[in-house]
């Protein structure tokens, strides 16, 4: 099964999750997702997700100069973002449990 299809639904959650560990700029978030095992994530969709979460008020944004070149725009979780993460985590866990039970029942 193509994981990129699955990713579409949970990319918000994944991005919120990696930002929980600390603020990050776009490419940093992308790298963290990749190193966490989400190899199939598309570059542009991560940037798009960051914009959407920011537009929804779940993220803060600030520019910070970098020593090796251009300024970078960092994104971080705010209160809304943390609440959203907690809620989404609950939803995901419930969904994942349901799916797991369903798949086990089907398999037997």
């Amino acid at each position: 099964m193509d994981t990129s299809q699955l990713l579409k639904g949970v990319l918000d959650l994944a991005v919120l999750a990696v930002l929980r560990d600390g603020d990050g700029y776009g490419y940093d978030v992308l790298r963290r997702l990749r190193s966490a095992g989400l190899e199939d994530v598309a570059d542009a969709s991560v940037y798009g997700t960051l914009r959407r979460l920011f537009a929804a008020g779940a993220l803060t944004s600030y520019v910070q100069p970098s020593e090796e070149g251009p300024h970078r725009k960092y994104y971080g979780l705010n209160k809304i973002g943390r609440d959203l993460l907690a809620e989404s985590t609950k939803t995901w866990n419930h969904f994942a449990d349901t799916m797991s039970v369903l798949l086990i029942e089907e398999a037997t």
């Binding site: 969709s45 798009g48 959407r52």
Partner: peptide, 13 residues
């Protein structure tokens, strides 16, 4: 175009 479309979809534009 693909890049922009991905961005558009993910950002909800």
């Amino acid at each position: 175009r693909q890049y922009a479309d991905e961005l558009r979809t993910a950002a909800g534009y």
